[in-house]
């Protein structure tokens, strides 16, 4: 009798511990995915911040390229003012395109390419573009881990009970966005 009671208590305790462990793992994975998502935002904002400096530096050298500058400025303000994710993603795509066009035009201005200030901005911009794509990559990795956990036994039971739902991957909406704008500096 006594032994049976102890066994039941022990089994119960093990189950409770397992549930707590799985629940915590789910929360951890979800937070990681959230954090990765916010990284994308951080880097997009960084790109917006870099653009005014870039234009300011390039303006003096590129007197006949007003159209290029206007396209960038317009895409930037659209991206910054975008209300929802779909709009933002579209606007960021346009901005990326405008920037890569700008970098192509830069090829015709060797003086600008020798400017120390411009060179360091160039490095920052390349790095920011890389960071955006790595942040996306990392977000998708995290989402994959989270979704796997939600769908697999036994964690799927706990996920269902506590209302953890599958996340969507970061799919790129605009065709142009699918290729991270290739910033060519050669």
């Amino acid at each position: 009798m006594k032994i049976a009671l102890i066994v039941i208590a022990a089994v119960f305790a093990v189950i409770v511990l397992a549930v707590i462990g799985i629940y915590n793992a789910l929360v951890r994975l979800r937070n990681q995915a959230d954090n990765a998502w916010s990284q994308i935002d951080v880097q997009l904002k960084r790109r917006h911040d870099l653009i005014p400096n870039l234009i300011e530096t390039a303006k003096g050298y590129m007197k006949h390229e007003r159209g290029t500058f206007e396209a960038i400025t317009e895409a930037r303000s659209k991206a910054m003012g975008a209300g929802n994710v779909a709009d933002a993603s579209k606007a960021e795509g346009m901005l990326g395109e405008a920037l890569s066009k700008f970098m192509l035009v830069v090829e015709n201005y060797p003086d600008l390419k020798a400017n120390q200030n411009f060179l360091s901005l160039q490095e920052e911009l390349t790095s920011t573009e890389n960071k955006i794509s790595f942040a996306r990559q990392s977000f998708n990795d995290q989402v994959l881990g989270f979704n796997n956990k939600i769908q697999m036994f036994p964690s799927n039971i706990i996920a269902g009970t506590f209302g953890f739902v599958k996340r969507d991957f970061f799919e790129i909406e605009v065709a142009a966005e699918r290729e991270v704008p290739k910033v060519s500096f050669s």
């Binding site: 990681q32 954090n35 990765a36 990284q39 880097q43 360091s120 490095e123 920052e124 390349t126 790095s127 890389n130 960071k131 790595f134 942040a135 990559q137 990392s138 990795d141 995290q142």
Partner: peptide
Amino acid sequence: HPQLFNVVEEMKIAAS
């Protein structure tokens, strides 16, 4: 060394 620092930060983001 901006480039080195940036590359480390890129990998930090990629590896979360």
